[in-house]
């Protein structure tokens, strides 16, 4: 599916090259127009990083560092970035103000109809924004980019808890890992066991809930369990549950964007990176060095902000359907 969006020359033919490239170029121009109108600065950060990411669910593609023999400080490997997040946050900490970027990202994902190891990401950060401001911002961008029929009914904002209640009639915050495991085994054919509650939430989310999201109108799924906060702020919801101030945007069951009210505190970042590496150890994954440039930026002070990454190839796919 992703192959049809014009990013891969090998998937283009003489008969479709002009049409597909024109669609892509028009989309990129419309994105830039939207941000230019709001005096947002476009930035262009490195694709090669000295450090990998610690997130246990993400794996960098690494490349040999050709400068390793010339500079004693060089590491043997460089890492293709999984998103421009750390580099952009360094710019924010230096006082760049709100910024956006359209760039390639790389992930060691299994390829599939909605996954490619190389893809185009639109990522932006708004200084002073809360999660709800950013949802409004993403909605305005969609209005500018997507067919009017898609946006005719506005957008839906649904909490993680409400999504589970609606589609599975269970409360993900109340049930224990064991109860979720039993529930999953009753509803999905699988044999594995796990004591990690998030595994069961992820399984139920991906198999039973996600396919239903955004079918009528684009859906922002918000207030994730705190254990899935990644680098988002954590707060209490109305039920008193600890939730991550994070959202994912779904259109027609496809995850299109992932946004955070950004964690800014240095020490909390260090804690989360440690948790990531601990989890990596449990999963027999390599423990990753923490990005020192990013930590330094956090120490000097990341402004309060909200940021989101949006898959441009998927956006093109959805705009065409």
């Amino acid at each position: 599916m992703i192959e049809t969006t014009g990013a891969n020359p090998a998937a283009l033919t003489v008969s479709n090259v002009k049409q597909r490239l024109a669609k892509r170029a028009k989309m990129l121009a419309a994105i830039r127009y939207y941000f230019d109108q709001q005096q947002m600065l476009e930035v262009d950060t490195p694709l090669l990083s000295d450090y990998p990411v610690t997130d246990p669910q993400l794996d960098n593609i690494k490349v040999e560092n050709p400068t390793v023999n010339y500079q004693s400080t060089s590491q043997p490997w460089l890492y293709l970035t999984t998103s421009p997040e750390y580099a952009m946050k360094q710019l924010l900490s230096l006082g760049s103000g709100s910024i956006y970027q359209i760039s390639k990202s790389f992930r060691q994902d299994a390829p599939g109809p909605k996954h490619s190891i190389e893809f185009t990401l639109l990522e932006w950060y708004r200084v002073g924004f809360k999660m709800t401001d950013l949802i409004d911002d993403v909605t305005a961008l969609l209005m500018a980019l997507m067919p009017t029929s898609l946006m005719a009914n506005g957008v839906e904002i649904l909490s993680y808890r409400e999504a589970f209640l609606r589609h599975l009639s269970i409360d993900p915050f109340i049930l224990t890992a064991k109860q979720l495991e039993d529930f999953a085994h009753q509803n999905i054919d699988c044999d594995f066991t796990d004591q990690d509650k998030d595994i069961w939430l992820d399984l139920l989310m991906s198999h039973c809930i996600e396919p239903n999201l955004g079918q009528q109108t684009p859906c922002f799924l918000i207030d994730y369990p705190a254990s899935q906060a990644a680098l988002a702020k954590i707060a209490h919801d109305q039920q008193g549950n600890l939730v991550a101030k994070r959202f994912e945007l779904y259109i027609e069951g496809i995850e299109l964007a992932n946004g955070y009210e950004e964690l800014t505190d240095h020490d909390q970042h260090v804690d989360r990176f440690e948790q990531d590496n601990q989890r990596r150890g449990e999963l027999d994954l390599p423990v990753q060095a923490v990005d020192q440039h990013f930590l330094k930026a956090l120490k000097s002070g990341l402004p309060e902000c909200a940021g989101v990454a949006l898959g441009v190839d998927r956006l093109l796919l959805l705009a065409a359907s």
Partner: peptide, 14 residues
């Protein structure tokens, strides 16, 4: 064989 991955979470093979 389809790899399914919810947002940022655990990947599964369906």
């Amino acid at each position: 064989n389809e790899v399914v991955k919810p947002g940022k979470g655990q990947a599964f093979n369906r």
